[in-house]
Every structure is written in structure tokens, then in C-alpha cells.
């Protein structure tokens, strides 16, 4: 027998753990703040932001100004770089004391390196990759994409606390300027006892500079059919003004294109005037890196490819044959 649906917890906090890196606060941090604020309003709870670091004050103040929410800055020398184990240790000690009803992180390589473990430790409900939320029948309902991006599922918690990871960019429209800054409280935390040792490595050669500045990006996915089939894309790129070639993650993994030409979560984020996706399924990993493009054309032989949901123009066609036809015409 399935348990009865669980309503709103009587009290507690919505806690969003902010992300930051060498470039400062990650964009998803403000989205987390906006989502925490909304969720707290719906549930009649208090929202609180948390930022961990060796020098967390400056970023904590920045987050408090931008969001208007109170920020708890947790300071320890060993939190200089990101460590999922350190985050789990520090937060597992504090969240029950804070009466956390909801704990949120980014659906990123950092958030996914601590939150699922904490959810297991707390015996919490857990929904990851959240792209939308609403209040339905007195409880929060979350939407996320599934089945290769072909469907959206709605999921509701049956238990508290609830752990969530938020898809970067999905709730960017919720971010609004705050009237007055939230309070910042800095607190020293005991160094966590970690079994793993983590060291940030010097950056690899970053994304291709031409990719960031291109007016037109021609992107290849596995649906192109093979490395030799990219030739027609290269010729098309040569014919278009200021065009650059890019690839999805699997294409770069297979060595069809170098990693510096990868667009997506672990690659470059681009916003050209025109983006032509060729044989790309439309996995979130990829689309977070290109959804800001001015005009998107998607070509795939799969009529239900997820990429079509965010395209301005959709073509169900064989590749690379169609590109040759197009090239001959222009």
C-alpha cells in the first residue's frame, strides 16, 4: 500500500546552497535563490541561502544584495576548493539543527556531488533536474524532463525533508532584483573529517575563441553518422560569414571534433545569431549551452527528437544528405 500524500510541513526552512567558482557566484545561484523564495512563500516557510568557502563573505553579501534573502556564510580554510564530501559533512551537521524542510542545489557537477548523498543520509525525498514548480493541492509539484527529453514528468514529495536539484537556466525568468539586501551571518565551521582529498587542476585549453564570437554556429551530433560526414558542415561553415563548427558531447567523446569545440554543460555556452543543430538529440547536457541562440534550426531524422522543442525551424531529414542539398542551393 502506498503512503498517503504528505502536505506542507508545519514549520522549517527552505535552504538553498549556492554555487561559486573561480568566476564568482554561478548564475544558478540566483536562480536557486529565486526558487527558494517562491517555494518558501507557497509553503509559508522561511527561505535561507547558504554559501560555503574559505572566504565566503564577499560572495555572501553579493547574494544577499541580489536576492534580498538572509545568507549564512560558512567559513573553513579547507573549503577553499569545492569538495562534495566536505559539503556533505558540513551540511549534514547543520541542516537538522536549522530545521530544513527543503534543501536545494544546482543540477550541476557540484550539486550532484553532495546532495544525493545527503538525501540518503537524511532519508529525504529527492527530485533532481527540476525545471519548473507549482503548488498543487497544498503541496509542491515539480516538473523535470525524462525519456531522453521527449516527455515531462511531474513529481510530488511524499515525505519531508525534500532535496531538490535545479536545472541551470530553467527558472532564470524568476530572478528579479531585490528591494533591500538580506542579512549576512558569517559562521566558522569545524573542518570536516574527509577521506577524499581534492585538488583543482589548472584549466585545460578552454573553449575555442572562434566559437564564442561566431555569428553562426553549425553543431554536429551523433546523427551526422561519422567523422568523415562532417566535411559537408565544414564546407557550409566556409560559405557562411563568421561561422564556426561545434559538436555535442558524444561527438567530442568519439573524437570527431576536439573538446574545445564542444557546446553544453561541460563545454562552451554560446549565443550566436543562428544555431543549426545537425543530428543532435537535444539532451539537456547540450541544450543548456545553446538555448540562448537568436534563431535555432534543428535537423534530425528522428521526428520526435527533443531538440525540436526549442527550435524555430524543424526539419526531419537524413543527414548529411540534406546539408549537401542546402549547400548546393545557397
Amino acid at each position: 500500500m502506498s503512503p498517503a500524500p504528505v502536505g506542507i510541513p508545519p514549520n522549517g526552512r527552505v535552504v538553498a546552497v549556492l554555487e561559486h567558482g573561480p568566476e564568482g557566484l554561478a548564475a544558478v545561484s540566483l536562480e536557486l535563490a529565486a526558487a527558494a523564495k517562491r517555494l518558501a512563500e507557497w509553503l509559508g516557510l522561511e527561505a535561507r541561502l547558504v554559501l560555503l568557502g574559505d572566504q565566503p563573505e564577499v560572495l555572501a553579501r553579493q547574494a544577499a544584495r541580489a536576492s534580498g534573502l538572509p545568507v549564512m556564510a560558512l567559513r573553513a580554510p579547507c573549503l577553499a576548493g569545492f569538495s562534495g564530501e566536505a559539503y556533505r559533512q558540513v551540511l549534514a551537521g547543520l541542516l537538522p539543527a536549522w530545521d530544513a524542510a527543503v534543501v536545494m542545489a544546482g543540477h550541476t557537477t557540484s550539486g550532484l556531488d553532495w546532495l544525493p548523498g545527503l538525501a540518503a543520509r537524511l532519508g529525504a525525498a529527492c527530485v533532481s533536474g527540476v525545471e519548473g514548480m507549482r503548488l498543487g493541492d497544498g503541496r509542491p509539484v515539480f516538473s523535470r524532463v525524462t525519456l531522453h527529453g521527449k516527455l515531462v514528468e511531474e513529481v510530488a514529495p511524499r515525505a519531508w525533508p525534500l532535496c531538490l536539484t535545479l536545472q541551470p537556466g530553467a527558472l532564470a525568468a524568476w530572478v528579479t532584483p531585490a528591494d533591500s539586501p538580506g542579512a549576512v551571518e558569517v559562521s566558522e565551521v569545524a573542518p570536516p573529517d574527509c577521506r577524499s582529498q581534492v585538488q583543482d587542476l589548472p584549466g585545460e585549453a578552454g573553449a575555442d575563441a572562434a566559437l564564442g564570437q561566431a555569428t553562426v554556429v553549425l553543431a554536429a551530433g551523433l546523427g551526422m553518422g561519422g567523422p568523415e560526414k562532417l566535411e559537408v558542415l565544414r564546407r557550409l561553415a566556409a560559405r557562411l560569414p563568421n561561422a564556426a563548427l561545434a559538436g555535442s558531447r558524444p561527438v567530442c567523446d568519439l573524437g570527431w571534433l576536439p573538446y574545445r569545440q564542444q557546446v553544453g554543460l561541460t563545454g562552451a555556452t554560446v549565443a550566436p545569431r543562428l544555431y543549426i543543430a545537425c543530428g543532435i538529440s537535444g539532451a539537456r547536457q547540450h541544450t543548456v549551452g545553446m538555448q540562448g541562440a537568436g534563431f535555432i534550426v534543428a535537423i534530425s531524422h528522428d521526428p520526435q527528437a527533443a531538440i525540436f522543442n526549442l527550435a524555430d525551424v524543424c526539419l526531419v531529414e537524413e543527414l548529411p544528405a540534406f546539408l549537401q542539398t542546402f549547400l548546393d542551393l545557397i
Binding site: S2, P5, G123, A124, A125, C126, V127, G136, V141, V145, T146, G149, K150, L151, V152, E153, E154, V155, A156, P157, R158, A159, Q291, I296, A306, F308, N309, L310, A311, D312, V313, C314, L315, V316, E317, E318, A321, F322, T325, F326, D328, L329
Partner: peptide, 27 residues
């Protein structure tokens, strides 16, 4: 600790104009 309430097709975020015709016509 969670339940799936339902499934739906994703909403189109853009026009999603589907071109029809032969490959040459679509091109």
C-alpha cells in the same frame, strides 16, 4: 518518498515551424 503525478509532452519553447516537402523544397 516521491510519486509521479503524470507525464506530458514538453511545451515548445519556440515556433517549431516544421518544413514539409522534398529535401530540395525544404532546403
Amino acid at each position: 518518498r516521491e510519486e509521479r503525478l503524470g507525464l506530458s509532452l514538453p511545451q515548445r519553447q519556440r515556433a517549431g515551424l516544421r518544413l514539409v516537402g522534398s529535401p530540395a523544397e525544404k532546403a
